[in-house]
Design a protein around this nucleic acid. Structure first.
Lengths: 340, 340
DNA sequence: GTGAAAGCGCTAACAC
DNA sequence: GTGTTAGCGCTTTCAC
């Protein structure tokens, strides 16, 4: 069934297409009676507007594109959910793309979003170097803000969490809990925030006099499976550290699983920490001590920055939000001697 | 920076816009030299095409819309991922919307997708009745296939898993494992597949002589939190069943957690089953026995049906795919007496 | 093999 | 308040 067009509505209502357009978008004053007639006609024809035509004419789509490295990672999903919510309140739509950790797929998505005339792009680039060209090219054309991760050497807006501060919170907490040595399980160093977390870990370990060793720095990917494998490796091949710090919650959940595989008690034999505070962190056993990213805030800032870029142009803003430490069972205090 | 248009490319290349269009989409034969000149010009100008204008003219967008009840539910995320993958291979894009379990939000998304001229819609409706009008209206205009859940009384394409068969597999398995009584934790009955699973549970329980009782049928939502609450309630308020059957894996993971809260051993004291086989089902402890939905297949079928509807029109197809039972620790055989 | 020209459905000047 | 008109950037007959 061919869709009704604005001119059919105009004809049925006995007015011009311009009036229909005005009546339906109430941009300019239209008499109450005309408006009613137009609305009735539109209703009768099941008219629903053609935003393609509208977009072409107005040169805007009220749509923003979002590109994430993996839609199955709960952290990103949650970011997407929050961004979508903010946009929806503004009557705008989200075009979501999954780069599958592949810079080429990512570049293709970016080109496609550009061709589709989205009003802005929110992206968490999958690679700190390979993503560079495409991100820059897109940023040159339309407002673009990077989320969580950022491409090295770009000058676009960015919003994320303060990774350094997060590692400080985590490491000081472990220090207080008596950890004198720590391992670090993470993804390969292909993006900025992964790098910052490792640097943070090293810096803080040194500062606090927490011992570490190269075999304890395990590089894989952000997944439960990798966390499990790395956890086993650490426990099988090396002296056991007091704590295993993980670069995200998925990895940490895998490590927790490895501890169970090896009958190592958490937190008594080894303490474990995550990063992100995904929902599952509270449901595993023991509950996962982690650092919470203020996701609603990150989403809101990202959308705000998009608008700001559209308005102000070039000057980029880097917004690092403060994380908060969430303490759960995986680093719980040992039972006090003489306690109940 | 204003985007380059096709006429600028034409001018630079010294040809007409028609030729540029042909050269860039190689629809009709263009001489090799002209094509090269056009490509060079496009390159130099950073021309990237305007798919809005193209869509208006061609009356198609190479875009399909997808609406899911919750983007944070791993089952749907995985479906989305698979659909996106299939579409990408066809050079098409996905417009993803999250209805947040709200029929009004869903209807708004549907209208918006229609206005944006998507070529088709894939939807898992959030409510079996409230979603009806909007889904029907959309289906009247463009190809639409329902996924997993379906609105009652609609005649659109549908693809999902055979819920009845799934419950049969699950219940027979529990029966073999010696369960003589079972509880069922699920969401409120607001959608078709939730209903079918409950009916399946009741039917199979009766057939196999597995005892159940009304207080053991717990209605909440699809979340870990609800599973945990319901699990506790069952264990605190009623005689404990031999098995707790859950309508999805999230709920089951919550129930597992409740068992730990109450120091009830799984599977020795109570057996637990899930539904969907999300990735986490393999990572909780004990591993979750569940039924696997063939998600890649579901995604592929959905996209195929979309094309078929576009080609064949009215005749709807209902495709129920066979689930497979995945047996893990949560229903493990009790250690055989005298075993190793 | 290439160009001229029409027009997809809408909105925004500009008249009245 | 409402109509007329001129495109937005592209694709596609239809000529040549």
């Amino acid at each position: 069934m061919p869709r009704a067009t604005i001119s059919q509505v105009a004809e049925l209502a006995g007015v011009s297409t311009a009036t229909v357009s005005r009546a339906l978008s109430d941009s300019r004053r239209v008499s109450a009676t005309t408006r009613q007639r137009v609305q009735d006609a539109a209703q009768k024809l099941g008219y629903s507007g053609n935003s393609i035509a509208s977009a072409l004419r107005r040169n805007r789509t009220d749509t923003v594109g979002m590109v994430v490295p993996s839609i199955t990672n709960p952290f990103f999903t949650s970011l997407v959910e929050n961004v979508e919510h903010v946009l929806q309140e503004q009557g705008r739509q989200l075009f979501l793309c999954d780069s599958r950790q592949d810079a080429e797929v990512e570049a293709r998505h970016l080109r496609s979003l550009l061709a589709r005339q989205v009003d802005g792009i929110i992206i968490s680039p999958c690679h700190d170097r390979h993503s560079g060209a495409a991100v820059q090219a897109a940023a040159k054309r339309i407002p673009l803000v990077q989320l969580d991760r950022q491409v090295s050497g770009t000058s676009t807006d960015w919003v994320g969490v303060d990774d350094h501060e997060a590692m400080r919170l985590l490491m000081e907490h472990l220090d207080e809990r008596g950890a004198r040595s720590a391992a670090f399980v993470t993804s390969t160093m292909t993006n900025s925030s992964t790098q910052l977390r490792l640097i943070g870990f090293r810096t803080q370990a040194q500062r606090l006099g927490i011992h570490t060793r190269e075999e304890w720095i395990q590089l894989g990917d952000y997944s439960v499976a990798w966390g499990r494998a790395a956890g086993r490796r650490i426990m099988d091949d090396t002296p056991r550290p007091d704590a295993i710090v993980c670069a995200d919650d998925l990895i940490a959940i895998g490590v927790l699983r490895a501890c169970r595989d090896r009958s190592v008690a958490v937190p008594d034999d080894v303490q474990v920490t995550g990063y992100d505070d995904i929902d599952f962190a509270d449901f595993v056993h023991p509950g996962l001590t982690t650092v919470r990213q203020p996701r609603e805030r990150i989403a809101a800032e990202a959308v705000r920055l998009l608008a700001a870029t559209a308005e102000w142009g070039g000057t980029a803003a880097h917004t690092a939000l403060a994380p908060t430490l969430v303490i759960r069972g995986s680093t719980a205090q040992r039972a006090r001697t003489g306690g109940v």
